[in-house]
Every structure is written in structure tokens, then in C-alpha cells.
Design a protein around this nucleic acid. Structure first.
Lengths: 153, 153
DNA sequence: ATAAACCTTGGAGTTTAATCTAAGGTCAAG
DNA sequence: CTTGACCTTAGATTAAACTCCAAGGTTTAT
């Protein structure tokens, strides 16, 4: 069992943030001490980890509440409803994944192209890298027989 | 050349948002009409696309300004500085990618497990799926020896 | 030439997600 | 048995990212 200060320290957030999440229905401590202190158990901690992960990849607290509601009213929802909700979120996640992979490719290409030395960065630009990675994809489609050289997804 | 209303319509955002981005140094129109109307060109439009993509994957406008600054002061920065900045952002992107892949796996497993029918969703939970996908990974790693059980990160 | 639909600015208001403040209760250590 | 670090509540304040409003100028179609 963690008190609010212990759990918040564990995830490097403020105790206030945990109270805020509780007020907004995202995470309630599973019990209270005799004196009213919040007591969080391991499941509560897992749930918090989920919330923080989802937040880190760009979901709003409302989005996260939607996802968590799948658990909360488990037996009150038809499986079809749950599936629809999950599939919608899955589409969002996969769209984000595609964007991020695009970003990662561009950043890598930028990092590799860049001399890394003390010269001016005349040709270093994210936008150029994004453009050239677009072009690279097109080029790859037209020259697929070179695919064994630096194959990327 | 696009006027503010045209560009905002193109990306389904408010004209106010474009003025806000301008005020905060993220995107300025490359020119103005005689009467002072903002005129955005194709490069401006690309830059906006980048901003919206980065936002969608969870970067703050400050983060995005950092990334764009790589372009803005191109020849004023040493290549080494650019490389350091890019590599920092790349680490962030790859951390987000890992989180998202974790999510996508869990959501897929949830979607597959779920009957999708009119029955109650007794066993449908994101948290369970996240847990079980964790366990799955561990199970795979320890598949040949059952000597240690309950190993967790 | 005048309405409708655009645009300008400055400034105020909203939403989301915290974060802080005040006034007090709890608990372990000296 | 008091000091200091913790906790409680309600409510105020902050920061980021918009979003709206008022008062007026511009463009285009009838």
C-alpha cells in the first residue's frame, strides 16, 4: 500500500495530480486509512502507469477515461460496444504510429546526413528531411531492386 | 497562394489558430497582400502540415518550435548543435514509438479476445490486455525454463 | 453601390491539466 | 508533548493552446 506521497514520488508527479485524477474519475485509491489518508495498491499503481503512458503518447485525459471505462463498467457493456470503442482507439493509435515512424525516419536521416561537426548547418532541416524521406519512399518504389541496401520500414 | 481562410479550411483548423501560431513564432505567412491580408505559399503549407503532425503525436508547441528552429537558423548553428538537438528529439520519438507499439499490441489483443457479440464484456479490459501482453513477452523469453515464476519489471 | 463574405487588430474568454494556498488533522521521533 | 513531515478539504491560480468578440477595412457579386 502506498500513501499519496509515496505513489506520486514513484512516478515523479505531484500528489495534487493524483487528487486531480481522482476528482476526474481516472484513478481512485482502493482504500483509505482510519484517518482518511488515501491508500493505493498495486492495481492502482498499474492503472496510474497506464494513464501516464497514454498521456505521454498524446491522448487527452478524456480519451484515457474512455479507454479505462472499458474496464470500469465491464459487465454492463455489451462486448460489441467494447469492440467498437477499442477498434476506434486502435485506428487512432495506428495513425499516430505511422506519423511517428515517419518522424523517426526523418530524424534519423537528418542525424546521418548532418556532418556533426563545427560547420554551419546549411543543409540541416527537418522539413527538408521529411520532404526527402517522402521522395525516398517514392524512389524506393521505383528502384526496388536496391532494397537490400539499408532496408527500412 | 492561400489566404488565411483557405489554408485553415485546407487543414480543418480555425483561422484564429493560424494567427495564434504566427504570434508564437511557429508559422508566418511568406507575404501579405497590398491590403494587409496574409498570403501563405506552398512552403508555408508544408510547414503547417509538419506542425499539425507533430502536435498529433503529442509534441507541445514548444517542442515543435525547437524542431523547426533547426530550419529557421540553419546557417547560424553549428552542425554539432543541430545533431545534438535532433538526437534528443529522436530519443523522445523512439520512446513514444515503443509506448505506442505496446498500446497497439494490447488493443489488438483486446479486440481479438473480445467476442464482439451482444454478451457482457466481463473479461474485456485494457489493463488486463496490457498486463497479459507484458506476461506474453515474459513468457516468450522464459519459454524453455519454468524455474523462476512471477518475474516482473 | 451595397450587401455578403472575406480580412485586419487588440483584447477578452474558454478548456484542459495541473499546481498552489489556507486552514487544519495525523503520526513517528526526540 | 511538541516539532516536522506527512495528510485532509475546498477553492484560487497558473500555463498552454486555443477560441471568440468588437470595430472596422477589403473584395466580389448583383
Amino acid at each position: 500500500m502506498y500513501r499519496i506521497g509515496e505513489l506520486s514520488a514513484l512516478y515523479d508527479i505531484k500528489a495534487d495530480t493524483l487528487r486531480f485524477y481522482e476528482k476526474h474519475g481516472l484513478l481512485s485509491p482502493s482504500s483509505r486509512s482510519d484517518s482518511g489518508y488515501r491508500l493505493y495498491n498495486q492495481d492502482d499503481s498499474e492503472r496510474l502507469k497506464f494513464i501516464l503512458r497514454a498521456k505521454a503518447v498524446g491522448f487527452s485525459l478524456n480519451d484515457i477515461a474512455d479507454l479505462l471505462s472499458i474496464e470500469v463498467d465491464k459487465s454492463n457493456r455489451a462486448c460489441a460496444d467494447v469492440k467498437a470503442l477499442v477498434d476506434t482507439k486502435l485506428e487512432q493509435v495506428e495513425a499516430k504510429l505511422a506519423e511517428l515512424q515517419h518522424f523517426a525516419t526523418s530524424l534519423k536521416s537528418l542525424s546521418n546526413t548532418c556532418c556533426g561537426g563545427p560547420d554551419s548547418a546549411e543543409h540541416c532541416s527537418i522539413l527538408e528531411a521529411l520532404e526527402s524521406s517522402d521522395k525516398h519512399i517514392i524512389a524506393k518504389q521505383e528502384h526496388h531492386h536496391f532494397s537490400h541496401l539499408g532496408h527500412k520500414d
